[in-house]
Simulated scan of single mutants.
Amino acid sequence: MPLEALIFDVDGTLAETEELHRRAFNETFAKEGLDWNWSRNDYRRLLQTTGGKKRIAHHMRDLSLASDAIDIPALHRAKTDRYVRLMGDGGLQLRPGIAGLIATACSAGLTVAIATTTSRPNVDALCYACFGAPADSLFPVIACGDEVAAKKPAPDVYELALKRLHIAPENALAFEDSSNGLRSADAAGLACIVTPSVYTGDDDFTGAECVVPDVTHLGGIEALAPLLPTPRTD
C-alpha cells in the first residue's frame, strides 16, 4: 500500500511544549488564588491522564475535593489563554528535523495532518510561534481532542483524522512521543513512530514501528514506506 499521509501528535512531538504547559497551569493557579503548584514529577504523573481538564479533575480527586468545587472548564480556558500568550512571547522551537520532514513530505506529494488531544487554539498558537503561519495552511487535516468523545489512548482522534483524510490506516504513519499516543494510533490501525520527549522517556513503547531520539534518525521519506503495516483482513 502506498504511503499517502503523515499524522502528527502536537505536544511533545512537534515541539517540547510540556514545560510551557506546566508553567501556564501554575501561573493560572496562582492568579486564581489556588495554592497548587505542579512540580515536574507531579506533571509527569499527571501526563498519564490525557487532556488538561481531566488533569485538573484528577488533581482535585487527589486532594479529595468535590468535582464541582472549582469550575474546571473556566479554569482550563484561563490556562489556555495564558499558554497562548506565553507561546507568543517566543522561545519555543520545533523538535529537530520536524520542519524538514514536513517540507519534504509535502514536496513528495504526501498530506501532513494532526491528531492531538490538545485544543485547536493551542495548535494554532504553536504553528504561529514555530512556523509563522496558521495551522490550516500547513496541515490540511487537523483533528483535536475536543472534537471526539474519548481522548487518547482511545483511537477516536486518529479515526477522525483518517476519516477527514479519506484514507485507510495502512496508507499513513503516525508520529507520537508518549505511550498513550502510541496506544491511540495502534488502536486506530496505524503504524507509529515514537520520538520520546522530556516527560515520556520512561514510557512503554512496545508495539511502535521504531523508537528514535528525533526524526533526523529516520533516514528521510524513502525510509518511511517500509514501516507501513500490512492491510487488515477483518
Results as ranks from 00 to 15, higher is better:
residue 19 E to Y: 05
residue 234 D to R: 15
residue 52 G to P: 09
residue 157 V to E: 00
residue 44 R to T: 10
residue 111 T to E: 04
residue 203 D to I: 08
residue 70 I to E: 05
residue 231 P to G: 05
residue 217 H to N: 10
residue 155 P to G: 13
residue 1 M to E: 03
residue 14 L to V: 15
residue 147 E to T: 14
residue 74 A to F: 00
residue 111 T to L: 01
residue 47 L to G: 06
residue 96 P to E: 11
residue 52 G to I: 01
residue 174 A to G: 02
residue 220 G to Q: 07
residue 200 T to C: 03
residue 160 L to F: 03
residue 111 T to N: 02
residue 121 P to N: 15
residue 122 N to E: 14
residue 229 P to H: 05
residue 96 P to V: 12
residue 13 T to M: 14
residue 94 L to C: 06
residue 127 C to R: 15
residue 20 L to G: 04
residue 86 L to Y: 14
residue 173 L to T: 12
residue 176 E to G: 05
residue 219 G to T: 13
residue 161 A to Q: 02
residue 2 P to M: 11
residue 92 L to V: 15
residue 78 A to P: 04
residue 143 A to L: 06
residue 53 K to Y: 04
residue 144 C to L: 02
residue 207 G to N: 05
residue 128 Y to R: 15
residue 114 I to F: 12
residue 32 E to N: 11
residue 153 P to H: 05
residue 17 T to R: 09
residue 171 N to Q: 07
residue 47 L to T: 02
residue 221 I to L: 12
residue 169 P to D: 00
residue 127 C to D: 12
residue 107 S to G: 14
residue 148 V to P: 03
residue 180 N to H: 09
residue 34 L to C: 05
residue 108 A to F: 07
residue 181 G to L: 03
residue 204 D to A: 08
residue 155 P to Y: 11
residue 203 D to F: 10
residue 214 D to Q: 13
residue 209 E to L: 02
residue 26 N to A: 06
residue 11 D to I: 15
residue 82 R to N: 13
residue 106 C to A: 11
residue 73 P to C: 02
residue 1 M to W: 01
residue 69 A to P: 08
